[in-house]
Simulated assay, not measured.
Amino acid sequence: MSGSRTSSSLPLRIAASAVGTLCAAFGINALLRPAHALTFFEMMPPTSAADRRVVDALMAVYGVRNIFMGVATYTAAYYGHRKALGWIVLAASGVAFADGLICKLHGQGEWGHWSLAPIVAAVGSLLLAGH
């Protein structure tokens, strides 16, 4: 297990935990306020009740996904698994990039996601590099 468990630098663990907090907060917001969560994608909720139910259900899926990413990040940070934490954070940057790409394909909102993706990727990469 050499290298899989280490006391990685405190600043990187704090940065990774901040990523986890952001993920969890976005997830909780999506579960409790799906219409507000759509604003992060620069989208408006549909006006028909049937369409609104579908969008609210999809926002719940998005919310659970983000809460999972937050919990996974916290868990790896808490137990000091630097490599696992690095991969989880790096994967979260991929999610931010993909969310931005989906926004771009729908016309707007990509930079709210793309501005975070490289920062999150840098934290994940530094954790994987062992600094």
Rank of each mutant, 00 (worst) to 15 (best):
V71Y: 10
L85G: 11
G70V: 05
W111I: 01
A98L: 13
G3K: 04
A76S: 09
I88K: 00
R65G: 03
G20V: 08
A92W: 06
L58I: 04
A16K: 02
V120C: 01
S2Y: 04
V95K: 00
I28E: 07
H106N: 15
V19Q: 01
S9P: 07
A129F: 07
I67V: 15
E42V: 09
T21Q: 02
T47G: 06
A37N: 07
A49Y: 14
S2I: 04
A25K: 07
S125W: 15
A91S: 12
I119P: 04
Y74C: 06
A121K: 03
L22G: 14
K83H: 10
A24R: 07
G112R: 08
M43Q: 14
D56F: 12
G63H: 10
L128M: 11
A49V: 14
A117G: 11
G86I: 02
M59T: 08
F40W: 14
G70C: 09
A77K: 03
H113F: 07
A91R: 02
T75H: 12
G3V: 03
Y62P: 00
R5I: 08
M59N: 11
A76D: 03
A60N: 14
T75G: 04
A72I: 07
E42R: 14
N29Y: 10
G130Q: 04
V95Q: 05
P45M: 13
I28C: 08
R5K: 13
T73I: 03
A84T: 09
L127K: 03
A72H: 05
G86N: 05
L10K: 06
R65A: 05
V89K: 01
R5V: 10
T39H: 13
G63W: 11
V61Q: 13
S125C: 08
L32D: 01
C103D: 14
T21M: 13
V120N: 01
L127T: 05
F41I: 06
V19W: 02
V120F: 03
E110Q: 15
A122P: 04
P46Q: 09
A15T: 06
E42I: 04
I28T: 13
V120M: 04
R52N: 08
R33Q: 12
R13C: 01
A96G: 00
S8F: 01
T75L: 10
Y78F: 11
L127W: 00
T6C: 01
G107C: 10
G70Y: 06
A25E: 08
S48R: 07
R33I: 00
A25P: 09
P11R: 02
A37L: 06
S2M: 06
L90V: 04
M44G: 08
L38P: 09
S2K: 07
S2H: 13
L22I: 14
L128E: 10
G112N: 09
V95S: 06
V120Y: 01
H36C: 00
V61L: 13
V120K: 00
L10I: 05
C103T: 13
V19G: 03
F68N: 00
A49F: 15
A37M: 05
F26P: 00
R13L: 06
P34E: 10
F41P: 02
E42G: 00
L58S: 08
V71A: 15
A30F: 10
I14Y: 07
F26S: 04
I88L: 11
T6F: 00
Y62R: 06
V71H: 09
H113L: 06
